[in-house]
Computed example of a mutant assay.
Amino acid sequence: MPLVQVSLRRGKPAEYHQALFEGVYRAMRETFDVPEDDRFMTITEHDDSTFSVSPTYYGVERSDEAVIIRITANNTRDLAQKQALYLRIVELLQANPGVRPEDVFINLVEVLPENWSFGNGIAQYAVQQG
């Protein structure tokens, strides 16, 4: 159950946002064992004063078009799945909506299954385990 939060500079059209959603979701389905309809995603746009990304950290040349993708997910995937996810997100977002690979910053936050409630105040994954 990944929760995806995308941050970018203000000014992109709805079609650009939708392409980001579709690309990340498709990459998760293809590489991360995410079931169909497991889709919880947000996009937050920022003005220049509330969005700061290093243009050169770790030897990567980023532009003002950088996109930060934070994925919160259960800690059940191995390193190979994580690497495949990162690469596939970059491939798909480069194809549509045209994000440069250097401008895709991904942060994976892993949590325990009992840290989710899908509604009704119930920790559904914890109930399944217990």
Rank of each mutant, 00 (worst) to 15 (best):
A27D: 00
Q5P: 05
L108N: 05
S63A: 05
V109A: 14
Q128V: 12
Q124W: 01
G121W: 10
L3F: 15
E114T: 03
A84R: 00
R26V: 09
T76A: 12
H17G: 15
Q81L: 00
G59V: 03
S63P: 06
A126G: 06
Y86N: 04
L20T: 04
E102S: 11
R62F: 04
A95W: 00
M28D: 07
H46R: 11
E61Q: 15
A84M: 01
V6C: 07
R29T: 14
L79G: 05
I89A: 00
G119V: 05
N107P: 03
D33T: 09
L8I: 14
G121C: 03
T76M: 03
A73N: 12
T50Q: 11
T56A: 14
V4K: 04
V67P: 09
I122Y: 00
E15G: 13
Q129R: 14
P35M: 01
P97G: 03
A80E: 13
V4D: 08
E22N: 13
E91G: 02
R62L: 04
V127Q: 11
R9I: 10
I89S: 01
H46V: 13
V99H: 00
Q5C: 13
V34C: 13
M41K: 05
A19V: 05
Q94A: 00
R100W: 00
K12L: 13
I89F: 00
A27V: 02
S117L: 03
D38N: 11
P55Y: 04
A123L: 09
V90C: 04
M28S: 12
M1W: 09
V24L: 04
F51V: 08
L8R: 08
G121M: 09
T50W: 06
V109Y: 10
A66T: 07
V60F: 02
E110Y: 11
N115H: 14
N107A: 12
T56L: 10
L108I: 13
E110G: 09
R62V: 12
N75C: 07
T56Y: 05
A73R: 09
R10H: 15
M28T: 12
G98L: 01
P2C: 04
E30S: 15
Y25L: 14
M1V: 15
D48L: 09
G130N: 11
E91Y: 02
S63F: 08
P13F: 05
S7F: 11
N75K: 13
R70H: 10
R77K: 07
Y25T: 11
V109M: 12
W116R: 09
G23S: 04
E65A: 15
R70Q: 15
P13S: 13
Q81C: 02
I106Y: 06
V4I: 14
T72Q: 08
A27T: 02
Y25K: 07
D103K: 01
F105Q: 09
W116I: 08
P101H: 01
E22S: 12
D48V: 13
A123H: 08
Y58N: 06
S63E: 07
S52P: 02
L8V: 06
N107M: 14
D38L: 09
T76F: 03
T42W: 13
V111C: 08
I89H: 00
A80F: 01
D48Q: 12
W116M: 06
A95P: 00
A19P: 02
F105V: 14
S63I: 07
T50P: 09
S117A: 08
D38M: 08
I69D: 03
